[in-house]
Computed example of a mutant assay.
Amino acid sequence: MKKSLIALGATLACLGSVHAQSSVQATGLVDVYVGSMRLAGNAKSTSVVGSGGMTTSWFGFKGTEDLGGGLKANFLLTSFFRADTGAPGRFNGDPFFSRDANVGLSGNFGSVSLGRGMAPNFLPTILLNPFGDSFTIAPLVLHANLGTTAVPGTTPADTGWGNQVVYTTPVFGGLKANLHYQFGEQAGKGGKNNTGLNVMYFGGPLTVMGFYENAQISNPIQSLFGAKKTDWMVGGAYDFSVAKVYATYGKAKTDGAGDDRKTFSLSGEVPVMNGVGAIKASVARTKMDNTDVRRTTTSVGYDHNMSKRTDLYAVYMRDQLTGVNSGNSLILGIRHRF
C-alpha cells in the first residue's frame, strides 16, 4: 500500500510538472462604433452601429507547451464576430475559425505552423499605417481589401489563407521573414496553389517591410481563380518620438486582365498627453494603369487610451473616386482587449 501511494504521488508530481510547462489562454477583442458611413459613389449616408471600427472583433484560444530543449508546441483557434449583431464571422458564410486555426512547433530554428493563418500581405499592411487593421476607416486597408467596381482591391486572396504551411525564420539583427505555401488540394500534377512571403525589419525607430503574393486560390472559402493574381508592397516607418511617419508603395495585377493597380500611401501619428492619446492621419491613392481612374481615401482621427486594454476613438474619413460623388464618414467607438 505504501509503495502504491508513493507511486501515485510521483505520478501526480509528474503531471503537475507537465501542467506547469503548458498554458492555454482565452483572448480576444471587442470593438463597436456608432456613426455615419458613406463611401464614394453611395447615394446617401447610412447611420450605423457597427463592429470593428479600428479592429475586427474576435475571440478565441491560444496555447503553448514547453517540450524541452528550447522546443515548444503552439496552437491558435480564433474566430471573428460582429459585435453589433452577435453574428459569427466577418460576413455571412465566413468560416467559424476564419482568423486562425493552426498548430505548430517553434524553437531555435524559428517556427513552422500548419492550418489557417495570416496571409503574407496582412502584417506589412496593418503595421505600416497608423489605423492598423481597421477595415472601416484605414485608407491603406480599404484600398487593399474593399475595392470598388472601378478600382478593385489589391489583395487577391483575403488576409488569411487556409490549408497552408508557414515557416518563420529566427530574428537576425532585427530582420525576419515568413514563407507561406497554401495547398490547392487538387488531384494530379500541375495543381494550383498560393505562395508568398513577407520580410520585416525592426531596428530602433526604423521599420522596413515588404511582401509578395502569387495567388491562384481564393480565400476564406476556397475556389480556383481563372488566372494568376499577384501583388506586392514595400514600405517603412520612422519614429521621431514627436511623430511617427509611414509610407508604402505597391502594385497588383491579374494576368491577362489589364487591371494593373498602383497604390501609394502616406501617414503620420503624433502622440499627445504624454502618450495617452494619439492624433492619426493617413491617405492612400490607387490608380488604374490603363485608365485615368483614381481612388483617394483620407482619414484623420484621435485615439485615447483609457487603460492598457481599453481605448476610445473618433475618426473622419473622405473617400473620393473618379467620376462619382465623394463620400464622407464619421465614427465614434470603443475598443476593449481581453
Rank of each mutant, 00 (worst) to 15 (best):
Thr155His: 02
Met54Phe: 08
Thr207Pro: 04
Ser98Trp: 05
Thr168Asp: 05
Ala314Ser: 14
Val103Ala: 09
Ala215Phe: 01
Leu179Ala: 11
Thr169Asp: 08
Asp289Arg: 14
Val234Gln: 02
Gly190Ser: 13
Gly235Pro: 04
Phe96Pro: 03
Met54Ser: 14
Asn193Lys: 04
Ser282Arg: 05
Lys253Phe: 06
Val34Phe: 09
Gly184Lys: 09
Val283Arg: 10
Leu312His: 00
Thr27Val: 15
Trp232Val: 01
Ala177Gln: 09
Gln25Cys: 04
Thr207Gln: 12
Met54Gly: 02
Gly210Thr: 07
Arg309Lys: 07
Gly115Arg: 04
Met209Cys: 11
Ser51Glu: 09
Gly173Ala: 05
Gly16Gln: 13
Lys2Ile: 01
Gly86Met: 08
Asn42Val: 09
Phe264Pro: 01
Leu140Val: 13
Asn219His: 15
Leu5Val: 01
Ser282Val: 09
Glu65Asp: 06
Ser57Thr: 06
Phe75Gln: 11
Phe109Ala: 01
Phe172Glu: 07
Leu15Tyr: 11
Gln222Met: 15
Lys244Asp: 01
Ser218Arg: 11
Arg309Trp: 03
Thr136Asp: 09
Ala187Asn: 10
Phe338Asn: 10
Gly250Gln: 04
Gly323Ile: 06
Lys228Met: 08
Thr27Lys: 09
Asn74Pro: 01
Phe338Ile: 10
Lys280Thr: 06
Asn129Lys: 02
Gly41Tyr: 06
Ala257Gly: 00
Met200Lys: 12
Gly275Ser: 02
Thr78Trp: 00
Trp161Asn: 05
Thr56Ser: 14
Glu213Gln: 15
Ser241Gly: 05
Leu29Val: 13
Phe202Asn: 14
